[in-house]
Design a protein around this nucleic acid. Structure first.
Length: 289
DNA sequence: TGCAGTGTTGCTTC
DNA sequence: CGAAGCAACACTGC
């Protein structure tokens, strides 16, 4: 799914619905999603009757701390999203029991279902099946997550911290920004948006960016991610909130997926370029190399 | 029909 | 050895 704002939106929605609940059972028709422990029966056994004590986000990971001292980690990757509701299994797939946003076609790729002790279900819908689920010893997971870059929306993420994160990094700024070991949570949408906002070309070499531009980029990252969280993320594709509804960041998107449309600042036609295996969207007037 | 795709890792190549 | 490029994962929608 998704990037920091989408994962944060998911976590908020889950807190309201599944915090303090316990797992009753687990179902899956694509057990490859569960990487740890590999054996599905072991995974099931470890979860059964365990209560969800806390739900948090670190980078693009959703983390459920359980009463057993273990933590369930869900990384939704490209198309995964967690939903809460009730479904019935019919003709080989899960159909929502109620009318409403859960009926959205993107919500029907359910390959993993957690049954909860209040009768609700938490489901992982994942069209491309790239998502991963892992069960960790909570302390070990904490240690593992320290390898990731700083959280850009934390108060402790200062301009100084940002510069430290970039220190010694070489190459194109967009690739560096999207590296999870440099800064957490920035993916293709928000990297494009932040670079446009700061008027920096995505291919600009990190070493060639001036202090003043870096400052603008820092501000832009904070601003665009905070706005994304406020608006519940971006749902132009398959990302949905846990209730199945769409986020509304789309109304604020300035460059991503706006190829051939005019720049909101200067009317230059937005161009799509390709590198690092991804699309970048730029205004060649505002963002120069 | 063919290709792009909100992510990450790991292999290959230079 | 480091950096850059690319495939892999898997499948739908445009």
């Amino acid at each position: 799914m998704p990037e920091l704002p989408e994962v944060e939106t998911t976590v908020k929605g889950l807190r309201a619905r599944v915090l303090k609940r316990a797992f009753v059972d687990v179902w899956s028709d694509w057990q490859k999603t569960i990487k740890k422990p590999v054996a599905f029966e072991d995974f099931k056994k470890e979860l059964k009757n365990k209560k969800i004590l806390n739900i948090s986000r670190r980078a693009k990971n959703v983390i459920f701390d359980l009463s057993s001292g273990y933590s369930l980690l869900v990384h939704q990757k490209m198309t995964g999203h967690l939903l809460v509701g009730t479904w019935k299994f019919e003709n080989g797939r899960w159909l929502p029991e109620e009318k409403g946003p859960l009926e959205d076609s993107y919500n029907l790729f359910i390959h993993l279902v957690f049954f909860l002790d209040d009768g609700n279900m938490m489901a992982l819908s994942d069209l491309r099946k790239f998502a991963k689920v892992e069960l960790w010893d909570s302390k070990e997971l904490k240690k593992e997550l320290e390898k990731l870059g700083p959280e850009p929306l934390e108060k402790t993420f200062t301009f100084k911290k940002f510069k430290e994160a970039l220190k010694g990094k070489r190459g194109k700024i967009k690739i560096v920004l999207m590296n999870p070991e440099v800064v957490s949570g920035i993916g293709n949408i928000y990297a494009n948006e932040a670079l446009w906002m700061a008027k920096i070309h995505p291919k600009k070499d990190v070493s060639k960016i001036k202090e003043s531009e870096l400052r603008k980029l820092f501000d832009a990252i904070k601003k665009v991610l905070a706005l994304g969280v406020e608006l519940g993320g971006e749902s132009f594709s398959d990302y949905r909130k846990p209730d199945g509804s769409k986020g509304s960041f789309g109304t604020e998107r300035k460059v991503y997926k706006r190829e051939k449309q005019p720049c909101f600042r200067c009317k230059t036609i937005i161009k799509r370029i390709h590198f690092n295996g991804r699309s970048s969207f730029i205004c060649e007037t505002c963002q120069q190399l």
